[in-house]
């Protein structure tokens, strides 16, 4: 192979058409309240774990919607399920259930 001193670069674009949104569908089907997240960050502000370690519960929504399962799996493991996020959520989302569903869903779709 010739050495050109440069290479072909891969796009960083989120390609919505190619995303695997099975997990997203599974979570929303079982916890419809999650549809209404507005990413206000109240959850992260009060999060027991996020106050001490690099964990952002708000980003669960983002990773799930962008179907970034790898980041999601890494992030979700840091949750201690204390439920404080659920207490402050202005949209009254059952966030703890969302976390449980994601955990279940990751295993489910990995095996499918």
């Amino acid at each position: 192979m010739g050495k050109f001193g440069f290479s072909v670069m891969e796009t960083r674009t989120v390609n919505f058409g190619e995303l695997d949104n099975r997990l997203l569908g599974y979570v929303l089907e079982n916890e419809a309240s999650f549809l209404t997240c507005i990413s206000c960050g109240g959850c992260t502000a009060t999060c027991s774990a996020g106050n001490l370690i690099d964990f952002n519960v708000r980003k669960i929504n983002l990773f799930l919607r962008r179907c970034d399962i790898e980041s999601l799996a890494r992030e979700i493991d840091k949750c201690m399920l204390c439920g404080k996020c659920t207490l402050v959520c202005p949209r009254d989302i059952n966030i703890r259930n969302v976390v449980m569903l994601i955990k279940k869903g990751i295993v489910k779709f990995r095996n499918e």
Binding site: S39, C40, G41, G42, C43, T44, T46
Partner: peptide, 12 residues
């Protein structure tokens, strides 16, 4: 006061 600085992604 406590909030999340959502754009930096950290509690503030």
């Amino acid at each position: 006061i406590k909030a999340e600085d959502t754009l930096s992604g950290r509690p503030l």
